[in-house]
C-alpha cells in the first residue's frame, strides 16, 4: 500500500510527515531499551527480510495483488520500537532508491506501514498472549492474528487520511468499503507469512523472539520452582 505522491494534498502530507518524524524520534528512544544482545544483531536482518518479502506480491482475486507490510512480524521478533525503525528504514530505501512510495508521501507511508501495522499488530498479539495459555506454541498463531488485523487497520487509516486530504472528489464510503475489503484478503497473506517466519525462528531459537520472552520467562520460573521443590 505504498502511497505515491499526489494522492494526498500538501497540508496532509506535511502533517503525516510531522507525525512520522515524531514517531521515529520516540522509537529511537524506546528502541534503546529493547535492543539488547539478542535483538540488536537480529534487527538489521529483520529489516532486510521485510524488504525482500515486500517484493513478493501475491495475487488476491481478480487483477489485484498484495504484499507483506511486516510491521507485526518485526514487532514480534525485535520489539515494537525497533520494529518502527526497521520498517521505516525499508520505506525510506524503497522510496529513495526504488521510486516505490512517493517522497512527499514518505511520512504518510511511515505512518501507515511502519507505525499503524506495528502498533495494531503488537497490541493484538500482546492481548492474545495474555489471554491464551502461556505456551511457546501460542506465539506464532497470536502473531499471525495480530498481522491479519494490522492490514485492514492500515487501510482504514489511509481512508481516514484521504477523507481529510484526498486530492480527488470521490465517494468515501466506496473507498472505505473497497480498501477494507481488499486489505482483509491481503491480511490473510500477511498472517500466513508472519506465522511461517515467526514459527521458523521459534522452532530453532525461541529465545530470539521478543514476544516470546514473557512466555519463556514464566516457563523457566515454573521449572525452577519445581526443581527447588524436588
Amino acid at each position: 500500500m505504498h502511497v505515491p505522491d499526489g494522492f494526498l494534498d500538501a497540508p496532509t502530507s506535511i502533517a503525516t510527515g510531522a507525525v512520522a518524524v515524531a514517531a521515529v524520534g520516540v522509537a529511537l528512544r524506546g528502541a534503546r531499551r529493547e535492543l539488547d544482545d539478542k535483538t540488536a544483531p537480529l534487527a538489521g536482518l529483520v529489516a532486510a527480510f521485510v524488504f525482500a518479502t515486500q517484493m513478493i506480491n501475491f495475487p488476491v482475486g481478480a487483477g489485484t495483488s498484495g504484499h507483506l507490510m511486516g510491521g507485526a512480524l518485526a514487532a514480534v521478533l525485535v520489539g515494537p520500537w525497533s520494529a518502527v525503525l526497521c520498517v521505516s528504514v525499508v520505506l525510506i530505501v524503497q522510496s529513495l532508491l526504488f521510486a516505490d512510495g512517493g517522497i512527499t508521501a514518505l511520512g504518510t507511508n511511515i505512518l501507515l506501514i511502519a507505525v499503524t501495522t506495528v502498533v495494531v499488530g503488537w497490541f493484538v498479539t500482546k492481548v492474545l498472549l495474555k489471554v491464551l495459555p502461556k505456551r511457546v506454541g501460542m506465539v506464532a498463531p497470536a502473531a499471525a492474528i495480530g498481522a491479519f488485523v494490522s492490514v485492514p487497520a492500515a487501510a482504514l487509516v489511509f481512508t481516514g487520511l484521504y477523507a481529510v486530504g484526498g486530492t480527488a472528489d470521490i465517494s468515501l464510503s466506496t473507498l472505505a468499503t473497497a480498501m477494507l475489503g481488499w486489505h482483509t484478503i491481503i491480511g490473510l497473506g500477511e498472517a500466513a507469512i508472519t506465522f511461517l517466519a515467526v514459527g521458523a525462528i521459534l522452532s530453532v531459537r525461541p529465545d530470539l523472539v521478543y514476544a516470546a520472552r514473557g512466555v519463556i520467562a514464566d516457563r523457566e520460573l515454573v521449572i525452577k520452582a519445581k526443581e527447588s521443590v524436588a
Binding site: 505522491d5 494522492f7 495483488s65 521510486a99 473507498l175
Partner: peptide, 29 residues
C-alpha cells in the same frame, strides 16, 4: 511475483483517483 496492481493501486483505479499520482522524484534513478 504478481505484476497486478496492489490493493491500494487497484482501489485507486476502481474509485477513480489513480490519475492523481504524480511522477516520482526518483523515477530516473
Amino acid at each position: 511475483a504478481s505484476a497486478n496492481p496492489d490493493g491500494l493501486e487497484y482501489v485507486a483505479e476502481e474509485t477513480g483517483f489513480l490519475d492523481r499520482a504524480s511522477e516520482h522524484g526518483a523515477a530516473d534513478g
